[in-house]
Nucleic acid binder design. Structure first.
Length: 681
DNA sequence: AGGCGCACTTTTTTT
DNA sequence: AAGTGCGCCT
């Protein structure tokens, strides 16, 4: 479609973005480099479709997190105006499939089943292993089996390969050698038995876990032509963000919609950082062969960063032995050289970041212009501390969210029990929070309770046998009374469990206690307990953001892990602890693929910066970097070792506030952009 | 036996 | 901060 005066986009899109947004073919893959206007293009696409008369409910927007999906949707609605009745949906693959299963009892036996909370999978496995393999048998830990199970489902690989990956950190083809090792064969047999029992258990108790949902949708649509027709008939356009993080299982779901819908997928292979969840960064290259009739459009102009920032990012990527199909160029020439800052103690690092932010704000800047990024979420703790001490407002992404905290999960067992009285796992966790009840007694009590036909009779039976504390009975009954007032129900649950929880959490109780107000507030927004249970499991992060420190002011510094920072950008970016052994992580660098994923992760971090980029690294680390068989033996730095001095300034914090160095004073870079090597074979 | 408490490790990253 | 292992107590 040619541009003309009726074009809704005017000058806001470049040619490639415009071509993508107004694409008229069947399926499109948009390969969008960092800062190339990926989100803007998805939004433009949605606006274009709406403009063309496609109704909101015929469009699905899928992203990797609820947070980013929601953000895209709200930006679209903002730009389109308020004509929406909330028909436009932004979702994750998981919440999408959850909805499909719920809405189609005619195709899915699982429609009314209960979702097995992810943090409960390991204990469920522990529960079934007790009855199917002998104690002390050669078998991985429950949590490892849970990971193995997820791995097999998400990547569609063999059990052997998944075990090799999870237990040994290696992901290789060729199972023969493994299967010749008698020890491995024994472990594998046990894992098989446990997983089989786990699958049976879930079916018997009408439970599905996150990954099961995707698989069940894909399977059903595969086998049942009616289901395929009806379900894929509910949507015309599927817009997928972060396509590079899509794994085999998600791909499988998507492929079922190829016939009936239009796919519009946006991604960047160089920003693929979810291999641990089964994403394969190369799978995006297979798009055109998997999806018939697909076209590809590339966005290669970076609008976000200065050339100086992009030079370092491109250099990093160019150092990779892998080949990324990338030719990013910046529209913003020059810019301040990024700074590498060496430190000796984490405090030096945190202090320096905070001082830089304070100075920028004192000079008239905003807190919101600053973004602190870390590989692991605990690395943000020091920065947090300094921000608090200096009264710098901040928000933090990543890490354990409220709804994953142990005390919250403990309390919510009452909700799960009321929502589904036969939820054995919820019962066990609930009962175990009372003094004197451990695994064995809890199992016995549950057995008695479930012998009844409903909650009332079950509880009565347990009371008759005198095996259940009165407190445990009355708390559940109280919660049950307020089934349609979840906010009040939380208060009741807390009243019933408080004394038990105080004992359990001892000193940390004073910190945990205050979370329950927020939880009650949150729950009160749902119509009833069952709805809340279903919703919170699908949307934990969103709830957390709602409760976060955001309310006070919007001008805040953002602290985030890279994985939670997808799509974020800021004028000034501080990347924390880019030190060999930490980044790449010493435990995750056995294979080149692991190290390269870490590199992509760093690439994502660097490309968040618009104007100023600070890379922090620990001085003299890596001396003993070879804990993992010298795989990191590339001097003190794995990633930054050969960084050309012309690309950055370098400084060293010697001790409190004393900064030396400036080994490179050149303020501006006006050299032509470095381009990554590219294999044209 | 079953539950508890203490000391110890172990943690990436997320739906 | 939460899970694991082990010895002690009821």
């Amino acid at each position: 479609m040619a541009r003309n005066e009726t074009d809704i986009f005017g000058e806001e899109l470049n040619e490639a973005q415009h071509a993508a947004a107004t694409f008229e073919g069947k399926h499109l893959l948009v390969l969008a480099g960092a800062g190339s206007g990926k989100t803007r293009t998805i939004i433009a696409r949605a606006r274009y479709l709406l403009q063309k008369g496609v109704t909101e409910d015929r469009i699905r927007i899928l992203s990797f997190t609820n947070k980013s999906a929601d953000e895209i949707v709200s930006r679209i609605l903002r730009e389109v105006g308020s004509m929406s009745q909330g028909g436009l949906r932004g979702q994750t693959f998981h919440s999408w499939c959850y909805e499909i299963i719920r809405n189609h009892p005619e195709f899915f036996a699982q429609s009314a089943w209960t979702l097995l909370p992810p943090e409960e999978i390991a204990s469920c496995i522990g529960f079934v292993r007790g009855v199917c393999i002998p104690e002390g048998a050669a078998c991985p830990k429950n949590s490892e089996i849970a990971t193995i199970y997820g791995r097999v489902l998400n990547t569609r690989c063999s059990l052997t390969r998944a075990m090799h990956f999870v237990l040994d950190g290696r992901d290789t083809e060729g199972d023969e050698n493994m299967n010749r090792d008698p020890g491995f064969v024994e472990r594998k047999a046990n894992v098989s038995t446990v997983i089989q029992a786990f699958i049976d258990y879930k079916a018997e108790h009408q439970l599905i876990d996150y990954d099961d949902m995707l698989d069940i949708v894909a399977q059903t649509m595969d086998a049942d032509a009616d289901a395929r027709r009806v379900i894929s008939g509910e949507v015309d356009h599927i817009l997928v963000d972060e396509m590079q993080d899509t794994n085999r299982l998600q791909y499988d779901v998507l492929l079922k919609f190829v016939e009936g819908s239009h796919l519009f997928c946006v991604g960047d292979d160089a920003q693929s950082i979810y291999a641990f969840r089964g994403a394969d960064f190369e799978s995006i290259h297979g798009f055109t062969s998997l999806v018939p009739d697909a076209k590809v459009i590339r966005l290669e102009t970076n609008y976000r960063s200065t050339q100086a920032v992009l030079d370092v990012s491109n250099w990093l990527l160019g150092q990779s032995p892998l080949h990324y199909d990338k030719h990013l160029h910046a529209v913003r020439n020059g810019g301040r050289l990024p700074t590498v800052i060496n430190w000796t103690t984490p405090d030096d690092q945190a202090r320096d970041i905070v001082q830089k932010i304070q100075k920028a704000v004192a000079d008239g800047g905003n807190y919101a212009d600053h973004l602190v990024l870390a590989r692991k979420n605990y690395e943000l703790n020091d920065v947090c501390r300094y921000c608090t001490a200096q009264k710098i407002p901040y928000q933090i992404f990543g890490g354990i969210v409220l709804l994953e905290c142990a005390h919250i999960l403990d309390l919510l067992t009452t909700f799960r029990i009321v929502a589904n009285y036969r939820d054995e796992l919820a019962w066990i966790r609930y009962l175990k929070s009372f003094r004197g009840i451990g695994d064995a007694l809890a199992s016995r009590i549950v057995l008695t309770i479930l012998s009844g036909s409903d909650l009332e009779t079950g509880l009565a039976a347990a009371q008759r046998q005198n095996i259940i504390p009165q407190q445990a009975v009355s708390a559940i009954k109280a919660v049950k009374t307020y089934e349609t007032q979840p906010g009040t129900a939380i208060v009741e649950a807390l009243r019933g469990m408080e004394s038990a929880l105080i004992e359990k959490y001892a000193q940390s109780w004073i910190y945990r206690k205050k979370d329950f107000d927020a939880l009650a507030e949150l729950a009160s927004q749902s119509p009833d307990i069952a709805a809340f249970v279903g919703e919170y499991l699908m949307n934990k992060a969103i709830f957390d953001i709602k409760l976060g420190p955001l309310e006070t002011t919007t001008d805040v510094v953002t602290l985030s892990t890279i994985h939670s920072a997808k799509g974020l950008e800021a004028k000034s970016v501080y990347v924390v602890n880019v030190t060999n052994g930490n980044w790449p992580d010493a435990r995750n660098c056995l294979e080149e693929a692991d190290r390269e994923e870490e590199r992509r992760c760093l690439y994502v971090a660097l490309t968040r910066a618009k104007d100023e980029l600070y890379i922090y690294r620990k001085l003299r680390s890596g001396v003993r970097a070879s804990a993992k068989k010298n795989l990191l033996a590339k001097g003190d730095d794995y990633f930054l070792a050969d960084l050309p001095s012309a690309l950055v300034e370098e400084m060293t914090i010697l001790k409190q506030g004393v900064i030396v160095g400036n080994q490179n004073q050149k303020p501006m870079s006006n050299r032509p952009a470095l381009k990554p090597r590219f294999n044209f074979d």
